[in-house]
Design a protein around this nucleic acid. Structure first.
Lengths: 209, 209
DNA sequence: CGGCATCCGTGACGATACTG
DNA sequence: CAGTATCGTCACGGATGCCG
C-alpha cells in the first residue's frame, strides 16, 4: 500500500491502496509483456521520473506484485517480473482499457505510442483464431500476443514463431478492441489481412465441429 | 483528465487520465448508490478533505462522469449523480474489488466501514435468486442491491420494498464475493439465512415506506 | 552503461477554519 | 448545506551525480 492508505474495509479501496498510485498500473501493463529491465521500463513509460520508477518498483516488490531477479552472465542484468498476484491484475487493466478505448478517438501530438499498448484490449478478441501466438502489424509498429494462456501474454516487436499474422491499421485495431467490429467482419471487409503461418493446432478438448 | 496526463496513446492510460486520481474511483463507488449530496459523500469517504472532494467532483463533471443537479424545494439540495458514462465504470470497480478481496482478511482497527461497500463484489453473485431487490443484513449494517439491472445498483440502509432478505456475517459475505463459496452452498450450510419476502408484488402504496 | 540516489522547484494533498 | 481560504507537508517530475 502507498504511504497514504484509504483505511477503508472495502475490497476496491484495498486494491487502490496497492495499485492506485500514479504509474503503478502502467508498470504492470509493461511487465505483462514479460521480464523487463529498469532501463527498458523507463524507456516505455515516457514521463516517469527515475526516482518515482525506482520507488514504485520497490513498492511493488513489497506488495508482492513483482520480483527482482538477476540474470546470470553473460548478459547479466537485473530484471523485474510480475508475480502470479501481479498477473491477476490483467482483468483490472482490461476493464480500464475497455472503458478508455472511446477516448482514443482523439490522438494528440504529444501522445507517446508503443505498439504493444494495443495488446491488452485486443487479446480477448483474437481467441477465435485458433492460433497460439499472433503477430500484429500496425503502421505504428509490431507486437505479438499469446491467445493460449501462456506467459508472457504479449510483447513488443515480432514473435519468435508466430502462428498467425494480422496486418491492420490502428483505427481498425481500436474498433475491434472496443467490440464494435468483429474480427471476422474485419477480415471479410478487407480491413484486416490475416495470414496463417503454422498448421492450426486444435485447442484441447474440442472435437470436430 | 487530471492536471497531469500520461500523454500516452493507450486505452488504459486514457482511462487513468480520467479516473486515476486519488479518490475518484471511490467517489464513483459512492455514486453508484444513486444521487448523493456533497455532505453525504464527505461522510462516506472518511479521510477525504473538503477541497479535494470539491475538486474531484468538478473534474468528474468536466469529464462527464457525473452531473450536478439541484433538487426543487422543499428539501432543496444539490445532488451529484453519475452519467451513463460514469456508470460504465462498474466493471472497473468490480475488477478492482475482485482483486482486492483477498486483502480483506486483515481488518485493521483504523479501517472505516460502510455496509454498502460490500455491494460491488457481491451483486453479481445474487443473480440466481430471481429476486429484484435484495436486502442484505450484516452485523456491521444493512444495505440493498438491485439484481434486475435497475438503477441505482445498490444503496445503504434497508430497501423500500425488498423481494428477498439475506442475513449473514461479513466473512461469509466476503467468501461469496470472492467466489470461493456459492450462495447455494452457504444457504444450505446455514451460513446465510434467506427470506423471500414478496412472491407477489403488491400494488403501489400498500407496502411500508 | 544500467540502476538507482540526491537535490530542487512545483503542485497535489489533508486538516482546519471560515463563509454564503 | 456546500463548499472556499489558508497553510504545512509530501509527492511528483526534471536534472544531475554516483557507483557497481
Amino acid at each position: 500500500m502507498p504511504r497514504r492508505s484509504y483505511d477503508q474495509y472495502c475490497a476496491a479501496a484495498r486494491a487502490l491502496d496497492a495499485v492506485g498510485d500514479r504509474w503503478t498500473l502502467l508498470i504492470v501493463r509493461e511487465l505483462l509483456a514479460g521480464p523487463r529491465r529498469y532501463t527498458d521500463l523507463h524507456a516505455d513509460l515516457p514521463g516517469v521520473s527515475t526516482d518515482v520508477l525506482a520507488s514504485r518498483l520497490k513498492d511493488m516488490e513489497r506488495e508482492e506484485l513483482a520480483t527482482r531477479r538477476r540474470l546470470p552472465p553473460p548478459g547479466a542484468a537485473t530484471v523485474y517480473e510480475l508475480t502470479a498476484r501481479g498477473r491477476e491484475l490483467l482483468p483490472v487493466l482490461t476493464a480500464l482499457a475497455d472503458w478508455g478505448t472511446p477516448a482514443l478517438t482523439e490522438r494528440r501530438p504529444t501522445d507517446a505510442l508503443r505498439a504493444h499498448w494495443f495488446a491488452v484490449p485486443l487479446v480477448r478478441h483474437l481467441d477465435g483464431l485458433g492460433a497460439g501466438v499472433v503477430e500484429v502489424h500496425l503502421d505504428e509498429g509490431v507486437f505479438h500476443v499469446r491467445t493460449d494462456g501462456g506467459e508472457p501474454l504479449y510483447g513488443d516487436g515480432p514473435a519468435d514463431r508466430p502462428d498467425a499474422r494480422l496486418t491492420l491499421d490502428a483505427d481498425t485495431c481500436i474498433a475491434i478492441s472496443g467490440g464494435g467490429l468483429s474480427l471476422t467482419d474485419a477480415v471479410r471487409d478487407g480491413r484486416v489481412r490475416l495470414d496463417m503461418l503454422q498448421p492450426v493446432r486444435p485447442p484441447l478438448g474440442t472435437g470436430p465441429e
